[in-house]
């Protein structure tokens, strides 16, 4: 079911949705949003793309095998917990930078954790969708 309208729309929607998902991720600490929602929106963007162009195209666009995304995300989350070890605090003690970065505001280990959640959620959703749709086709 390849439709020109959907394909054209998706081409413009995909970057916007991805941008929106980043936006959700980074403002999540202070307003609605966060890693879970952001990840889901980003995954939905790719899902839309795979409906419009087919799974193979979507995979090509993603470039990375989703399992690696899962692993990377988990690693981010784990590392964010271990940052506290450097100052001899217990696992997962939140650590924050003292000054404000432009655009992001303060950076801290919880933010890295949220980034990890974001990446894991994208990985999981896409892994599930890709595997299932691959199975469906033949």
């Amino acid at each position: 079911m390849k439709s020109i309208i959907l394909q054209t729309a998706t081409r413009y929607l995909l970057p916007i949705l991805l941008l929106f998902s980043f936006f959700l991720l980074f403002r999540g600490h202070n307003s609605p949003g966060g890693g879970f929602v952001g990840g889901l929106v980003a995954a939905a963007a790719y899902a839309l793309y795979s409906i419009a162009f087919g799974v193979e195209e979507a995979k090509k666009l993603l470039r990375i095998e989703p399992v690696y995304l899962i692993a990377t995300g988990l690693m981010f989350a784990l590392i964010s917990g271990m940052i506290a070890f450097f100052s001899f605090d217990t696992f997962m003690t939140g650590k924050w930078s003292d000054f404000n970065f432009p655009l992001f505001g303060k950076l801290g280990s919880p933010l890295l954790f949220d980034l990890g959640v974001y990446v894991v959620v994208i990985g999981i959703t896409l892994k599930i969708l890709f595997t299932i749709s691959e199975e469906v086709k033949p």
């Binding site: 999540g28 600490h29 202070n30 307003s31 609605p32 949003g33 966060g34 890693g35 879970f36 989350a77 964010s80 917990g81 696992f91 997962m92 939140g94 924050w96 303060k106 801290g108 919880p110 933010l111 954790f113 949220d114 959640v117």
Partner: peptide, 18 residues
Amino acid sequence: LGKGRNIVNVILVDYRAL
């Protein structure tokens, strides 16, 4: 403590991050 205004998200990524 958590440097965040969205309490739900702070709970998720900081207080109860484990």
